[in-house]
Amino acid sequence: MRGHMRSVERAGLTCLLALVVAAAPASAQVLISGDWVGLFHEDQPERAPGPEVGDYLGLPINAAARQYADSWDASRLTLPEHQCRAHAVPYINRGPIRLRIWEEKDPLTQATTAMRIFLSTYAQDRTIYLDGRPHPPEYAPHTWQGFSTGAWNGSVLTVTTTHIKRGWHRRNGLPQSEQTVLTEHFYRHGNYLTHVTITDDPVFLEEPLVKTTNHILDLNTQPANYQGWLVCQADDEVPGRDPAWVPHHLPGQNPFIADFAKRHGLPFEATRGGAATMYPEYLKKVVGATR
């Protein structure tokens, strides 16, 4: 069903979180402040070198997202107005990332009013309000990291983010819409921080996209470990180009779209993504098709 995770998946995630919550003391709320470094044992090829064009594997994208990505031309990133763009919050956490997390306190009551996160990638700042404030109206501006509110559920910090700018579900042109709502769960176990993201995108996803990312506590962080970035200056990478030109492929005319399937010996259909390709039973279909 569009817009809804399969019930079994939702139930599984709920059980996982329930176990984590149950394992924590009733007093709940744990300290997640500190410097955290991403672990790259998951999806490393996508996260470091970057995804290949036409690799839509394992993402619950719909036909609109597929056409958007098929039309996308990496040369778009050479346009001055595209060069300095940050990753939006549903995607940025899978980058080569460091997190610094700290608490904002009410000076009088010493209650935690917000969690702050500084992300090394693109030097992004996040504020997660814990004071019960509402989200702004739809006509408020959208930002790369959106507007976040959170609450502690036992030892798990659950965060809801809206007002997110257009970004990617995968940085090979698969789009993430401004209507996206991101739900996150942060939970700490020892010196590890597990970050669960559930991305609901009614425009470009058939089902929510669920990811987990692990981080390890870094007690020896140096200032140089973080990216200092206050000003990004776009350059004229292709002199003489018409400033109104937008690189893209006309429908059906992207010559690179099948390269990923050929290079890895995959059925082309499987590389096209979609909710069905996320589940184990799809493997039987693929194996059957290739015999």
């Binding site: 036909a63 609109a64 789009p175 819409s177 209507q179």
Partner: peptide, 8 residues
């Protein structure tokens, strides 16, 4: 020709 943008 607008298919992927119609949801927006």
């Amino acid at each position: 020709p607008t298919m992927e943008y119609d949801g927006l």
